[in-house]
């Protein structure tokens, strides 16, 4: 009996050590980011190059922008890399982040059935949204306080559609990430707003296609912020800053520009200060 207990305890400790040991050894930073950057495959393309150049591993926790900012606010990330400029600026203003730097942009696209029953196709996102509301065509919303969700709400507001008053069964608030929302839209043949990266990387498209793209209002800005070490002393300031500097450098910006799916560029570098 004693033997077994000792054995169990030994196994247990070993397992725990293995599990935590693997996590403890490498030099790394934790980045709170969005599903769009992760699931579009950009990070898979970008991060190995940075790690090779710097020796710093990057651990990405991919969430909606709202959740990512919240995670950083609790001090659980070193760097935030998200796409909701207004929320990012508030984050910095509240003292949670050091400063916000624009890194790149991609664009949102309105996805819908290729048959386009609401006849939304075109270049004016606001007009298209108004048509969807008028026709009560099924529309899937992320509803998860993500950057995409925030953008969608901004467009509805700009289009003059009062969602609170007019929300009906046609408007499906799914409270889910980009991928699940796309899956839902594919199965319901509904319209939805997506970032181009996630759309291009998405495989289960069904009868959906891009119906609106190219409106300048659809530009989707990504920003990067170092979490404020004054507020969270354990933040890996030096390594986090190194990552940010690299993203904004000519080398980092070129890698971003190089990422393509099916020959199509997904993200466009937009660093205002091109150092080194």
């Amino acid at each position: 009996m004693t033997r077994l207990r000792t054995l169990l305890a030994a196994c247990c400790t070993t397992a725990l050590l293995l599990a935590t040991g693997a996590a403890a050894q490498a030099r790394f930073i934790t980045v709170a980011s969005t599903t769009s950057t992760e699931q579009s495959g950009l990070f898979g393309h970008l991060l190995p190059v940075f790690t090779k150049a710097s020796g710093i591993k990057v651990r990405v926790v991919a969430l909606g922008t709202g959740q990512a900012l919240d995670m950083a606010r609790r001090g659980d990330a070193d760097v935030v890399f998200v796409h909701d400029q207004a929320a990012e600026e508030k984050f910095v203003a509240d003292g949670h982040g050091v400063s916000r730097q624009g890194v790149m942009y991609n664009d949102f696209v309105l996805i819908g059935p290729r048959s386009d029953p609401a006849r939304t196709a075109g270049k004016d996102i606001l007009e298209s949204l108004r048509r969807i509301e008028t026709m009560k065509a099924p529309f899937v919303s992320r509803g998860d306080k993500s950057g995409t969700h925030a953008a969608e709400l901004r467009y509805w507001k700009a289009a003059g559609v009062d969602l609170d008053g007019k929300k009906g069964p046609w408007y499906r608030d799914t409270g889910s990430g980009m991928g699940p929302a796309l899956n839902t839209a594919a199965s319901m043949n509904a319209y939805l707003l997506a970032d181009r990266g996630s759309w291009l990387a998405f495989r289960n498209r069904g009868a959906l296609g891009i119906v609106v793209a190219g409106d300048t209002r659809l530009f989707n800005q990504y920003g990067v912020i170092l979490v404020n070490p004054a507020r969270h002393p354990h933040v890996k300031q030096a390594d986090g800053q190194k990552f940010i500097d690299w993203l904004l450098s000519a080398a980092g910006q070129k890698i971003i520009a190089d990422y393509k799916i099916d020959g199509e560029q997904l993200f466009f570098p937009s660093a205002s200060r091109l150092t080194h």
Binding site: T35, Q39, G177, M178, G179, P180, L182, N183, A186, A201, F202, R203, N204, R205
Partner: peptide, 9 residues
């Protein structure tokens, strides 16, 4: 879960 959300069912 990740592959599902990427639509690679």
């Amino acid at each position: 879960a990740l592959e599902t959300s990427k639509g690679d069912l």
